[in-house]
């Protein structure tokens, strides 16, 4: 197996949780595995999106085989509490800039999971952009994580869409 590792290099890049269409690059992607990420439950995808083009692009939607519903979320102060909600009109990645999707901040929300999402599992995730080609990342790994989204701990879906 080791002798043939050169053959695997292109696949390695493909599988490493990053994807690119040349203009927009998604890096360091991961998906949260917690007590909420069970069949019918929810999770979120995080990472860094970099826009190498000279025009703003907007992340408007996403898709993955593991979730029935995928939305672009932000955290916002609603009635004195931090809650997450869908971002009106999507999330802009400014020309030449990177944005970070992270716990407690913007994220790609996965709801109505079609199966349990266990630590170390890999999924593929598609990012739908307005103003750029969609990109699909394979090998997005599920990391055990609890921090960031307070709603995950309450056991209640407090979503304001």
């Amino acid at each position: 197996m080791r002798k043939t590792f050169l053959l695997f290099i292109p696949i390695a890049l493909f599988l490493s949780g990053c994807a690119s269409d040349g203009e927009v690059v998604a890096q360091d992607l991961w998906v949260k595995s917690s007590e909420m990420s069970i069949k019918g439950g929810m999770s979120a995808v995080y990472g860094t999106l970099t826009n190498n083009s000279s025009q703003d692009v907007v992340l408007v939607r996403g898709a993955t085989e593991i979730a029935g519903v995928v939305e672009v979320h932000e955290m916002a102060m609603i009635g004195g509490e931090m809650k997450m909600q869908e971002i009106d009109g999507g999330l802009t990645v400014p020309a030449g800039k990177s944005i970070v999707l992270e716990p407690g901040g913007n994220h790609l929300m996965l709801m109505m999971l079609t199966d349990d999402l266990e630590a170390g599992e890999e999924i593929s995730v598609t990012f739908d952009f307005a103003g750029a080609e969609d990109i699909t990342a394979n090998g997005v790994v599920a990391k055990p994580a609890e921090g960031g989204d307070e709603e995950y701990h309450s056991g209640e879906m407090e979503m304001d869409n």
Binding site: G17, W30, P103, A119, G120, E122, V141, K143, A145
Partner: peptide, 26 residues
Amino acid sequence: DMLRWMRLLTDDISRLTRGEPVLADP
């Protein structure tokens, strides 16, 4: 399950060896 665990550790160790945070590092 062991394979999933090793997937996490392999990636973590390779990042930490380079002096980088692991994915999902709080």
